[in-house]
Design a binder for these strands. Structure first.
Length: 298
DNA sequence: CGACGCTTTCCTGATT
DNA sequence: GAATCAGGAAAGCGTC
């Protein structure tokens, strides 16, 4: 096991990096993130860009959104079968779609066909991708997603009203109380030194607020987490390990994983900051003690 | 300094 | 079989 390494290799990077498309890069992210759909009922970027020019990442986004639109569970099709860019996607036949996605295939084929011919987009989707006005912000964020980069990150560019949050939920006091039964030195992790800690927010940002703020800033959220049901507060992790790395970055903990992050998430059930969503992987729902996520809260 | 809240880490077992 | 989910247990860390 690789643990307690300072910076470079301590993340189980295989799985994390596999969540990023092969072409993931600052340039890629900037162009792509700038068209990222807010998820719920948002403007559909794919209507403005020709499928032929989609990246792998955008192909998956299209898949996800198409399934969402038809209330089809994403687990019903093997996403790996669509590990291709837009050009390859467009070359698939009707039969190919059926092979790749079973009964959902025809629906996907139809959706893609509609986009190919029905779009009002310009001729060259890629050129529509790079609005300079948001490029710098996105760049800052997306570059921080790269391994080996260690600059400022996502949170630094978020609105301060979301950062300097009030405790924002009444302490229910029903949390688990660990009972240290005795000194036990079986584990000794030398964590990286917590050198730079932001002073102005002593309480720091809690995990659930971090998640919430990613959801509330879709422009800076390149497909990490998305709303499943905006009104109900249901959301799903699309890139679980990438989110974990980002969280780890925020906490200056390079060994954060989704496994560990999710444990923290599960502790929120008891405090009713989150509610369980049974049977759906990577799906959570904000609970009564989570504040600031509703549209009406804003 | 100690209590406390909020994770973080580790682990075992179940489920998908 | 790999991911993910469920929680228990205990340690780490910053605040109060």
């Amino acid at each position: 096991m690789v643990r307690q390494n300072s910076c470079l290799m301590s993340v189980p990077s295989a799985s994390a990096e596999s969540q990023l498309p092969a072409s993931w890069s600052p340039h890629y992210s900037c162009t792509d993130a700038s068209t990222m759909v807010p998820g719920y009922m948002g403007r559909l970027w794919m209507q403005d860009t020709q499928p032929q020019f989609w990246s792998k990442f955008q192909v998956w986004e299209w898949l996800q959104q198409t399934l969402d639109m038809h209330q089809i569970d994403a687990s019903s099709i093997p996403f790996q079968n669509f590990d291709m860019d837009g050009r390859q996607l467009c070359s698939l036949s009707f039969q190919d779609f059926t092979r790749a996605a079973g009964t959902v295939g025809p629906l996907l084929y139809q959706s893609l066909t509609d986009l190919k011919w029905g779009s009002t987009a310009g001729q060259y989707g890629t050129e529509m991708f790079t609005p300079l006005d948001i490029k710098t912000e996105v760049e800052e964020f997306s570059c921080s997603m790269l391994p080996f980069k260690d600059d400022s990150y996502f949170y630094n560019s978020l609105p301060t009203d979301l950062l300097d949050g009030k405790p924002s939920f009444p302490t229910s006091g029903a949390s688990s109380s660990p009972n240290p039964s005795g000194p036990d030195s079986k584990k000794q992790h030398s964590r990286p030194p917590t050198t730079q800690v932001k002073r102005h927010n002593p309480r720091g940002t809690h995990l659930w607020e971090f998640i919430r703020d990613i959801l509330l800033n879709p422009d800076r959220n390149p497909g990490l987490i998305k709303w499943e049901d905006r009104a109900e507060g249901v959301f799903r992790f699309l890139k679980s390990e990438a989110v974990a790395q980002l969280w780890g970055k925020k906490k200056n903990n390079s060994s954060m994983t989704y496994e560990k992050l999710s444990r923290a998430m599960r502790y929120y059930y008891k405090r009713e900051i989150l509610e369980r969503v049974d049977g759906r992987r990577l799906v959570y729902k904000f609970g009564r003690n989570a504040r600031g996520w509703k549209e009406s809260d804003k």
